[in-house]
Simulated assay, not measured.
Amino acid sequence: MIVVTRLNDSQFAINPDLIERIHASPDTTLVMVDGAKFIVTEGLDEVIEKIARFRAHVISLAYLTSDEDYSSGARPLEIVSGPHAIEDPTGPGTVQPQRPRRL
Rank of each mutant, 00 (worst) to 15 (best):
M1D: 10
M1F: 03
M1V: 14
M1E: 11
I2A: 04
I2C: 02
V3T: 04
V3M: 06
V3E: 03
V4P: 06
V4T: 13
V4M: 13
V4E: 13
R6T: 12
R6L: 15
L7K: 07
S10A: 15
S10F: 13
S10C: 11
S10D: 15
Q11G: 09
A13E: 15
I14A: 13
D17Q: 13
D17N: 13
D17M: 12
D17W: 10
I19K: 05
I19M: 06
E20D: 14
E20A: 12
R21C: 09
I22P: 05
H23W: 09
A24C: 09
A24E: 11
S25G: 07
P26I: 08
D27C: 04
T28K: 03
T28A: 06
T29I: 15
T29R: 12
L30R: 08
L30K: 09
L30C: 10
V31C: 02
M32V: 02
V33G: 03
D34W: 01
D34R: 00
D34S: 00
G35L: 04
A36H: 02
A36L: 02
K37R: 14
F38S: 10
F38M: 06
I39T: 15
V40C: 04
V40K: 03
T41L: 06
E42D: 08
E42G: 03
G43W: 02
L44C: 00
L44I: 01
L44M: 00
D45L: 07
D45F: 02
D45R: 11
E46C: 02
I48H: 11
I48V: 14
E49A: 14
E49R: 08
E49Y: 08
K50I: 03
K50P: 01
K50D: 05
I51D: 01
I51K: 01
I51G: 00
A52Q: 04
R53V: 09
R53G: 03
R53M: 08
R55K: 12
R55Q: 10
A56M: 07
I59G: 00
S60D: 14
S60R: 08
A62N: 07
A62L: 11
Y63M: 09
Y63T: 13
T65Q: 14
T65N: 06
T65E: 12
S66Y: 02
D67Y: 02
D67L: 04
E68S: 14
E68W: 05
D69V: 13
D69E: 15
S71R: 08
S72K: 08
G73V: 00
A74F: 03
A74K: 03
R75D: 04
R75K: 10
P76L: 01
L77S: 10
L77Q: 07
L77T: 05
E78N: 10
S81E: 12
S81V: 07
S81I: 06
S81M: 09
S81Q: 11
G82R: 00
G82F: 01
P83V: 03
P83G: 05
P83Y: 04
A85W: 05
A85S: 15
E87C: 05
D88F: 04
D88I: 08
P89S: 08
T90H: 10
T90R: 14
G91C: 07
P92Y: 01
G93M: 12
T94D: 10
Q96S: 10
P97T: 08
Q98A: 15
Q98R: 14
Q98E: 12
R99E: 14
R99M: 11
R101S: 10
R102T: 14
L103Y: 04
